[in-house]
Design a protein around this nucleic acid. Structure first.
Lengths: 199, 199
DNA sequence: CTTCTATACAAACGTTTGTTTACCAGATTC
DNA sequence: GAATCTGGTAAACAAACGTTTGTATAGAAG
């Protein structure tokens, strides 16, 4: 039942947002009454926290795995990172979107935890970009302006692309999550100026 | 005072979300009591609608202008579109984010209006991409897979990148909105496989 | 000077909110 | 078989919600 509550709550938070979802709506979706939720979680906020924690742990694990799959080639690593993150946010788009938008409604300390997890993900991308630049595999210098694109800006651009795919992707459409992830990996390599022929 | 209510409400919706922002909070921020809001707007939802309508009208106007600035070169048009949209979502990030996240809380008909506006914006990008492909200025075919990236996927990737810049951009930082917009325009050209030397 | 309009106010409306309480049935343990 | 534990129920709580009401006041229009 604890798990059931988590899943139904995630769906409702996804549809209506955390503040607009009452405890009674969540428990009714599980076929029990409101008071029952407090046998499993200390508060409505605790339910949100549990959802976000699970989502972040899973996505971080997938990224670590993606890094390994890429071997020691930064361009392949970047492609794998994009693939894994896009897959996560399309296959588990409900939790993914909730994690991205509803952390503001957590108490301060738990909100900070979530922000830390987001920062760690960003650092993984930034370090991969730095390795690729050092290896001469990426090209971020604009010939028309003197200054190249900054690594943190590129990382945020790529992250926003992957993460927000969950917002419009529909699993019932003709495009599969894996096809989308492949296209995004390719587009990202072009974005950082990698040579797709050699990757 | 109507304008004042709109601005304070936008700020509060941005910070806490629409359902978590009470009419009393909005009016208190304006120095009046709750009932007063109903002299200017029919409901709390009407306030949200007014914010979203203004934001969408302004951003669509900027994009039309950007198209003209790009002349008849699809690559330059795309760069201008990215520049304008990024500028809008960084310089007016409060309204921009609210428009992107809170439309779900509108009544059905007004929510549809907002979705229509978002679709029109996407179509502008898609048509520009199609013109660029037809002119041979963009390259979206992945050598490692048989199928090229789809135009609608590329449009969504670019849009998510620009729109969500408002989520992390901070005007008090060292990076200016214009610098960011320039970097995003460059990154987008690389993403679609345009030759930056020729643009 | 009077009248009209706009906008503010305090107070109250019925609902709904998150949470706590006291109680109860069924399974598990000793 | 008695005790304990688990997870459910109905009912109640104060607080906050969006909105409506009747009234007051100030400035513009006639």
């Amino acid at each position: 039942m604890s798990r059931r509550i988590l899943d139904e709550a995630a769906r409702l938070f996804y549809e209506d947002g955390f503040p607009a979802t009452s405890v009674r709506k969540i428990t009714a979706a599980c076929g029990v009454t409101a008071g029952s939720l407090y046998n499993h979680y200390g508060s409505k906020e605790d339910v949100l926290y549990a959802i976000l924690k699970r989502a972040h742990e899973d996505s971080e694990a997938l990224l670590e795995e993606g890094l390994l799959h890429g071997g020691d080639r930064p361009d392949r690593q970047l492609a794998e990172l994009v693939r894994e993150l896009t897959l996560f946010h399309t296959e588990r788009r409900i939790e993914g979107l909730v994690a991205r938008t509803e952390w503001r409604h957590l108490p301060a300390e738990q909100a900070r935890e979530v922000l830390d997890a987001q920062r760690r993900v960003r650092r993984i991308f930034e370090r991969t970009l730095e390795r690729g630049l050092a290896a001469g595999r990426f090209r971020l210098s604009d010939p028309r302006s003197q200054r190249p694109a900054q690594v943190d800006v590129v990382a945020k651009a790529v992250l926003d692309m992957c993460i927000n795919a969950g917002q419009w992707f529909r699993p019932e459409g003709s495009l599969t999550a894996r096809e989308l992830a492949d296209q995004y990996a390719f587009l990202t390599l072009q974005l950082v100026g990698a040579d797709p022929e050699q990757t």
